[in-house]
Design a binder for these strands. Structure first.
Lengths: 138, 138
DNA sequence: CATCAAGTTGACGTTTACGTAAACGGCAGT
DNA sequence: ACTGCCGTTTACGTAAACGTCAACTTGATG
């Protein structure tokens, strides 16, 4: 009989996580200082990260890579994390989400522009390369 | 006869440019300190920006918005800016360009992920909103 | 049991990317 | 000639995002 429902009950130490996501432990603790993640603690006081914590950290790192400040990220996490109740609150949160989505779409657009710019530069050099080769044939 | 080839000879002062691209003059001067832009000077010493300079500044700002450090940006500008000659140099530069393009594509992919994450959060709240409405009907 | 790796909390240092203020020159309008 | 306004340089200030080091605990292991 296959034993179903066995919870791996995965969890990691701070250095596990640091290694997995390629950041320093200091950085992770720093994010905790800022209230971006709140891992559980063992009896002794060691930090203890669940897969949810890990997902959150990934979100943070991802956000960072696109110029979002930690403060903006915190803002985001708080809004989506709180147990908002009541239509008004919910609507506001959803609206905030839409706004963030729009921002991201905007970023994607801009990235395409940047890509274009670089492509043009590159093509310039490719052209030069062709000219060099022509010259050689002569 | 239409007068062709009339160069508007466009150029701008530092504050013109700052306003156009929505940055401070300090920032522009700072980029110059770092060697990212080198505007010409008027007799008196005032900076004088051509459309090329403006394009470059736009590139810088664009790069910045995606977490590229000014140092990375400088690296990029230098490589594309220098008058490289010789097939080896050209090939290296082109390779560098390809690498940058790959990085950007990677970023775009990651942005899509981030977008997905946020979308899921939002949909969660939209679901809650539906449940609230149900409850009300009761 | 000694020691060593890995965890903790402070505290201070460093880099990046500018802001801000001082002190000055040039030019336009009154 | 005086007043603003814009430009310049030099210099110091600062917020964000960590790095680094010290001082200490706590298991784990030869």
């Amino acid at each position: 009989m296959s034993r179903e429902g066995i919870q791996k009950e995965e969890s990691w130490t701070i250095s596990d996580l640091a290694q997995q996501l390629d950041v320093s432990t200091r950085t992770i603790r720093y994010y905790e200082e800022l209230g971006l993640i709140t891992p559980s603690r063992t009896e002794k006081g060691s930090r203890h990260y669940s897969r949810k914590d890990r997902a959150r950290l990934r979100l943070i790192l991802r956000g960072k890579r696109f110029g979002f400040s930690l403060d903006q990220i915190r803002e985001m996490i708080e809004l989506f994390g709180e147990d908002r109740t009541g239509r008004a609150q919910l609507l506001r949160t959803i609206e905030y989400g839409n706004q963030k989505l729009a921002e991201i779409d905007e970023k994607i657009m801009e990235l395409r522009h940047l890509r274009e710019d670089i492509l043009v530069y590159k093509q310039n050099f490719e052209q030069k390369l062709l000219e060099e080769n022509e010259e050689e044939k002569r």
